[in-house]
Structure formats: C-alpha cells, structure tokens
Computed example of a mutant assay.
Amino acid sequence: MTEFLTDNVKTAYDHFYTNDQSAWRMLGAKYKAQNILDVCKTIKPTKVLEVGAGDGSILHFLDQSNFAPELYALEIAQSGVDLIRDRKLAHLKEAQVFDGYKIPYADNSFDLVILSHVLEHVEHERILIRELKRVAQHIVIEVPKDYRYGVDKRMKHFLGYGHINMYTPTSLRFLLQSEGLDIVADKLSLTDREITRFSEFVIRKQPKTITKRLKIDLIYRIKKNLGNILGKKKQEQYANAYTVLVKKSDQDLQIF
C-alpha cells in the first residue's frame, strides 16, 4: 500500500501522549467506553482491536468490564503504545505502532474493531474504513459532532485539535453504508456534566461558583429533556458525540 500518512502528521503525534493530560483522557474515556458497551450489547466479541488506541484509556475501561477475552491495540504514536503496554491490562494481548492505514493482521482476524474519535483526524477516511472492514465482522465508530452552522468560521479552533473531517450522524451513516456496512445499533450522547465541570474548573481554571455549577446542570437537563420530548432530530442537533455499530453487509455497495 502507498504510504498515506505524511511525515508532518507522524511528527505531530510522535510525542502526543507524553504531556500531562492523563486525568482528562481517562475521564473522557470512561464515557467513550460506556458508549461502546451500550451499542455492542447484541454481540459478544472474543477478539477486539482498537485502532488509534491513544494511551489505552478506553481499553482500560473495557478491560475492567471484561468486554472481551482478547484485546489488541494499534496506534501511530510510539508514546501511546508505551503507555498502553505500561498499563498491564489483563486482557491485552498485543499493542503495536502502525502507519495509520495498513492494519498488520490477516483478513477477518477480529470479531470487532473500535475506532473512537479517530476518523475526524484521518486524511483518507475511506481507505481506513476498508481496512477495518477487511479485518473484522463488526466495527464500532464514535465521532464528535463538531458540525454546527457556521463551522467554517471556526477552522482554526478545530484544526488546533487536528479535526480535519466533520460528521453529522446522517453523514457518517451515509459514509459507512456506501462502504458496504449495515447499521446494527447507534447512540447519540451529550457531553456529561462531569466532563464539562472538569473542563471549566480544572482545565480552564474558572472559579467554582454555585451559579456556574447550576448553569452547567441546567443546560444539560434542558438539552436532554428537549431531545426526549421532540425526538431524534432534536437529539441529533444537541448531541456532542455519535457512536455507531456496523457490520459487513451481504451486498457490497462500495462505490470505488
């Protein structure tokens, strides 16, 4: 396969996981792992691979929940792989560096592949999706729902996070179905209040006032309740993340 991961991208991630943000990553991973568990209730995978596993935070929670007897990890950053191995996860069989696209396993090696908050960073998304499809029967993907009206006016903000792609639940489903994948289960989620409080009071170092705490709680409750009352369209509007479980389709609709 042609080398698709450019040198500047490799360099950017080489030391990405050496900084001190482990508490933030662990907090987010707790909810990402729960989303994976929720959409995967109908399957019982034995071998699970996480692609773009970062520092292993999600695998930590999946390991604790006995999600699968065998866990594997691929990550483009050596610093991330080192941290994954240092966790000494009970069900982890292997963690290794890969080039961002070519998965170093044979066809149908896994029951499930996880791609959580990775696709928005990928330069050639369909190439990676086809590799996931090659090595597993089921795939679970989670993306942030960055898209809002006028998002093109905030390019500097999102590019600062390395988000070069944006999805709505509808556009992600279209992408996956056009690659010959069937939707099995999905979940829309709001950023939990615990994460918002951490972001405000720990990362941004805002004063921990009662008013601010009440505002965070109120906004969350309003969005949650309006979504429940007004249905899925409104839930999609308010959602901060979308998680979807897909499987290989009996009919291959791949367009290229």
Rank of each mutant, 00 (worst) to 15 (best):
Leu92His: 11
Lys41Ile: 02
Phe110Cys: 11
Asn35Thr: 01
Val151Phe: 12
Tyr242Gly: 05
Met26Leu: 12
Lys93Gly: 13
Asp217Lys: 12
Ile129Cys: 04
Ser109His: 12
Ile222Ser: 06
Ser109Ala: 14
Gln206Asn: 15
Arg134Glu: 03
Glu94Ala: 11
Ser116Glu: 09
Val122Arg: 06
Ser57Lys: 07
Val151Met: 13
Cys40Glu: 03
Lys102Gly: 09
Val184Pro: 13
His91Cys: 08
Tyr105Ser: 10
Gly80His: 07
Ala33Cys: 02
Leu71Glu: 09
Asn165Pro: 02
Thr191Pro: 00
Arg134Met: 06
Thr170Pro: 01
Leu214Gln: 13
Leu214Gly: 11
Gly100Tyr: 10
Gly150Ser: 03
Leu159Phe: 12
Leu89Asn: 07
Gly52Ser: 10
Val48Pro: 04
Gly52Tyr: 00
Asp20Met: 02
Ile210Phe: 14
Ile103Trp: 06
Gly100Trp: 10
Gln34Glu: 14
Phe16Trp: 03
Lys44Gln: 08
Tyr31Leu: 12
His91Asn: 14
Ile36Trp: 02
Ser65Asp: 03
His15Tyr: 06
Ile141His: 01
Tyr101Asn: 11
Pro69Asp: 13
Leu71Asp: 11
Leu181Ile: 07
Asp182Tyr: 06
Gly28Trp: 12
Glu50Leu: 11
Cys40Asn: 15
Leu27His: 01
Leu37Glu: 13
Tyr101Asp: 07
Ala29Thr: 06
Leu172Ile: 05
Tyr220Gly: 09
Ser109Glu: 13
Ile58Pro: 06
Lys153Leu: 14
Leu83Lys: 15
Asn225Glu: 07
Leu5Arg: 04
His163Asn: 04
Leu59Thr: 07
Leu172Tyr: 01
Thr209Asn: 05
Gly28Gln: 11
Asn240Ile: 00
Ala106Val: 11
Gln251Thr: 01
Tyr101Val: 05
Val246Asp: 09
Asp152His: 14
Arg126Leu: 07
Lys232Thr: 07
Arg126Met: 06
Arg85Tyr: 00
Gln177Asp: 02
Leu176Gly: 04
Thr211Tyr: 05
Leu172Cys: 06
Asp111Phe: 06
Ala12Phe: 05
Glu200Arg: 09
Ala136Gln: 08
Gln34Tyr: 08
Lys156Glu: 14
Val97Pro: 00
Leu74Glu: 12
Glu200Gly: 00
His117Ala: 14
Met155Gln: 15
Leu181Val: 10
Ala136Ile: 03
Leu253Arg: 01
